[in-house]
Design a protein around this nucleic acid. Structure first.
Lengths: 147, 147
DNA sequence: GTAACATACAACCAAATGGTTGTACAAGAG
DNA sequence: CTCTTGTACAACCATTTGGTTGTATGTTAC
């Protein structure tokens, strides 16, 4: 399993889908065992239609998949997508470890440069600027266009 | 590090915070190195106030922390929270592994019960019902109350 | 003191979210 | 065929979200 990286819009969808307790619970159940939407719906204090919408959000995100089985629509979790989200978070930690290493290397290289009481931030690396691309606003707005 | 579990509302906040490309990018930068809000703001094609709001969302979620340093407000990532979110996702995979094991045990116990062409779902365990609590709707709504 | 910078925050707006009810339809059971 | 079950989907509504502008305030530089 190579667990290919999530694209930004995919990540948007996946984390949005996970940002709701009901949906996380649906995923947990779906991981544990497949079940129909109506079987899921009876578990929650909301209408069938509401649960249906949550399932739709989860499906769009790729966290679960639906499969028609006769009259019913069977829901099962997609571990692949969960793994990818996990990986994205892990990437953050990897960046941090890398940064920690860079700091350590820097301190080990010449210990005198960064005195403990120096006005320099004791934790910041002060790498002036990485030339990486800014990010588009995700937005919707039209009003601000006239500026 | 024990990496205590996220509560449901915390998980809501964390995943919501991560469900936006700009915010994920801010977290990435903050992990890599601390920086002021205005230093972040110049990176994105949106107003300072908008970035300020994103930072506020991230701070509420616990993914980053702000610290006043003279004139500036310094933003740094909180790895602890990232680790917790990671853990929550890992929990899903753990549930799956457990389920896989249960299936395997079941098949190994008596291999004849589940023929390859049986009408039973080849993957489902069919554990009728775990008596676990349903989940509250997160909601807001007032209209439905009259039903 | 004044100017410039970094931040804070309110008011506003369009679109998305998360719920509701109601209606329609297909599949199984009787 | 009819009834019930499971699903789909539209219309509606309040709240939240993600952006904007504008104004106020604190901090540093001159």
């Amino acid at each position: 399993m190579v667990v290919q990286e999530l694209t930004e819009p995919e990540a948007d969808a996946v984390f949005h889908a996970l940002a709701d307790a009901t949906r996380r619970d649906i995923v947990r159940r779906a991981v544990r065992q497949e079940s129909s939407i109506s079987a899921l719906a009876v578990r929650y204090a909301m209408s069938f239609a509401a649960v249906q919408k949550h399932v739709a959000v989860l499906e769009r995100s790729g966290l679960i998949a639906k499969e028609r089985r006769g009259k019913e629509q069977i829901v099962r979790a997609n571990l692949e997508t969960i793994a990818r989200a996990n990986r994205l978070l892990g990437e953050f930690e990897a960046i941090w470890r890398d940064r920690a290493k860079r700091i350590e290397d820097l301190l080990e290289g010449d210990g005198a440069e960064l005195a403990p009481d120096a006005p320099n931030a004791p934790d910041a690396v002060r790498a002036a600027d990485a030339p990486d691309a800014p990010v588009q606003p995700s937005g919707s707005n039209t009003k601000g266009q006239e500026a």
